[in-house]
């Protein structure tokens, strides 16, 4: 397994606040890695660093050996990093299908003039994209609702649609930001199955930020723990569960003579 994403001593400061501090971290091809930590530990900030929303103050982020810090989000997505959002961010005025179609933009051959001229090549490509988008939706059980406005979907379906949309960019690494948030236990079990399935079917590496320990411990091969922007532990789920510093971060230190 070769290395896909590498963070070297990445630090980001917002004024006096150090949101992420000297984090070293990597994700290998096809790996399913979890990223956990108490609220405000810097998990989403780390996602935003990897996807180019923020630029690290110091340190380096490489994807497939190429440095990505300083690039536009869209350029990084073009390299093969796609993400979902903690608060769902779909294109609300579009249909379910068009949400996915919009994400095909990246690999589009016919651009501005193609759309104006509408020649045979353009029409063939449009039809092919539509077909691909529909079959992606089919895999995730959303084909039935392809023509409905995405904002009228139930919450769980919207989360799934976000994953479909991210997959349409043909990523090598998929970042999922709290996909289980607001889901009930049944939906969570279904989500775990879905994430595993996606990883295997599309041969992706997945980096998962999640608060729900059942989900994280259930599917991740490796887990990294952040606290106050620092990485305090990394290992297999069973190692993490026993780690003293992790327990302290979540539950507090044991006090000697209480």
């Amino acid at each position: 397994m070769s290395e896909l994403l590498r963070l070297e001593k990445v630090t980001v400061r917002f004024g006096g606040l150090v949101a992420v501090s000297e984090v070293d971290f990597h994700v290998a091809e096809g790996e399913l890695v979890g990223l956990i930590g108490p609220n405000g530990a810097g998990k989403t900030t780390l996602f935003n660093l990897v996807t180019g929303v923020y630029t690290p103050t110091t340190g380096r982020i490489c994807f497939e050996g190429r440095e990505v810090d300083g690039l536009n989000s869209s350029a990084i997505t073009g390299m093969g990093v796609a993400r979902t959002f903690q608060n769902i961010r779909l294109f609300n005025s579009l249909t379910v299908l068009d949400n996915v179609v919009a994400a095909f933009n990246l690999h589009l051959k016919s651009g501005f003039f193609g759309a104006l001229w509408r020649g045979a090549a353009f029409r063939a490509e449009e039809a092919q994209i539509r077909e691909e988008a529909l079959s992606l939706l089919e895999i995730f059980g959303l084909r039935e609702v392809a023509q409905t406005p995405c904002r009228s979907l139930p919450y769980g379906d919207q989360r799934r649609l976000e994953i479909v949309r991210a997959l349409a960019t043909r990523p090598k690494l998929l970042l999922l930001d709290e996909p289980a948030a607001g889901m009930n236990p049944t939906e969570k079990v279904e989500l775990m199955r879905l994430i595993r399935f996606t990883q295997e079917r599309f041969k992706l590496a997945v980096l998962l930020v999640e608060h729900d320990m059942k989900v994280v411990m259930g599917i991740c091969e490796r887990i990294a723990v952040l606290e106050y922007g620092r990485k305090i532990a990394e290992g297999t789920p069973s190692e993490i569960q026993k780690d003293k510093r992790v327990i302290a971060a979540y539950l507090g230190e044991e006090v000697a003579d209480a």
Binding site: A75, T77, F91, N105, R165
Partner: peptide, 16 residues
């Protein structure tokens, strides 16, 4: 339309 609906999401989906 993606830019109109959500710029951050549009960028993240590879729309410049």
């Amino acid at each position: 339309l993606a830019v109109r609906d959500d710029e951050i999401a549009a960028e993240a989906m590879g729309v410049n």
